[in-house]
Simulated scan of single mutants.
Amino acid sequence: MTQRKSDRKQQRQLENNEFERFDKGHFNFNRFEPLTPRQDSLFKAIKMNPMVVAIGPAGTAKSYTAAAAAISLLNSGQVDGIILTRNPVPTGYTTGLKPGTTEEKMAPWLAPILDNLRQACTSPDGNSGFFTYLLKNKKIEFQELETMKGANFKNKFVILEEGQEASLEQLKNISTRCVDGSWLYIDGDVAQGNSRLKNGQDFATFITSIRSMNKKLDAGTVTMSEEDAEDWGSMRVPVIEFDKNDCVRGGHCRWMLEMFETEGL
């Protein structure tokens, strides 16, 4: 049904009034309530560390937890924007090149995390106006991995979705883009593969290397100056690992995860 001109005008006015409230910092969204201990650990780790990695199977709310943490940091003024990215590697066959702007091309790939951000922004009465406000004011942006070389992300919360679909070169690049005052979150499932990637073990290698570095720093076997020790030497990159028992997507998803593991798929 075609909307009447008067209705469209009223809708625009309501949106403008809502945006004015958001401009003044009057945000009203549901606070994050973890459903599992690991969700709680991930949320707290993100708030306390400039880089966090979460790994584990589908349905464990890794993305939603990160979305909630990102909105919380944005609301508190600790970051002034959220950047979303993902390596657009199709699973199986592709429908071909997608026309349009970067946002239009990346939208299908980033739809899941966008939906999680929308949920994280939703008010207790079900209004998602805050999410619309953030998108329209470029507080949530898309960026292609291939364009990140040389970039410096200051005061941003950067989210890389589906890390297992990124090459080691891409993982090296994005993990060195953030400066002090920024956050980087990477999630993925080391058990998932993609036949289009040359080396399906890059993400697993990346995770293993992070854990190894954390252990070496804990053991004091990394040579560094006193200044380095006070700066980056005190940092660790938490790796929060979820498993099938953390699945909150429902019985069907949990059943499939059990089947994949039991059958060795």
Rank of each mutant, 00 (worst) to 15 (best):
Q192S: 07
M235Y: 11
T208N: 12
E165M: 05
K216Y: 12
V158P: 10
A111C: 00
R4S: 02
G92V: 04
E146M: 15
G56F: 08
S72V: 06
L265Y: 14
K44R: 05
F206Y: 02
T36K: 03
D80N: 05
A111G: 07
L97T: 11
N137A: 09
P37D: 06
Q3S: 13
P50Y: 09
D231P: 00
V190G: 14
R31W: 11
E144V: 15
E141D: 01
E258Y: 04
L114W: 12
F131C: 07
T132G: 15
M259S: 07
P88Q: 09
D180N: 12
P238C: 02
H252R: 10
K244V: 12
G200W: 08
E230I: 10
L257Y: 02
P108Y: 09
P238H: 13
L217M: 03
D180H: 08
Y93Q: 12
V53K: 09
F142P: 09
Q3I: 13
R38L: 00
Y93C: 03
D189P: 08
N116I: 08
R211E: 15
M51C: 10
Q143K: 15
Q170C: 03
L145P: 03
P99R: 15
K216M: 10
K5S: 11
R4N: 05
R12C: 10
E258D: 11
A67Y: 04
W183R: 05
K139N: 03
E261V: 02
T65Q: 06
M106D: 01
T221Y: 12
R12H: 10
A66W: 04
K9V: 04
I186V: 04
E258C: 05
N30E: 10
F32L: 01
M148T: 07
N17G: 12
A58N: 08
K172C: 07
L35T: 06
R254I: 00
T94F: 06
G129Q: 10
I46K: 10
K44F: 01
V248L: 01
D218T: 14
V237P: 13
N49I: 01
L114A: 14
E141K: 12
E226I: 01
V248K: 04
N245P: 04
Q78C: 05
K156F: 05
D40G: 03
S212D: 14
F19P: 04
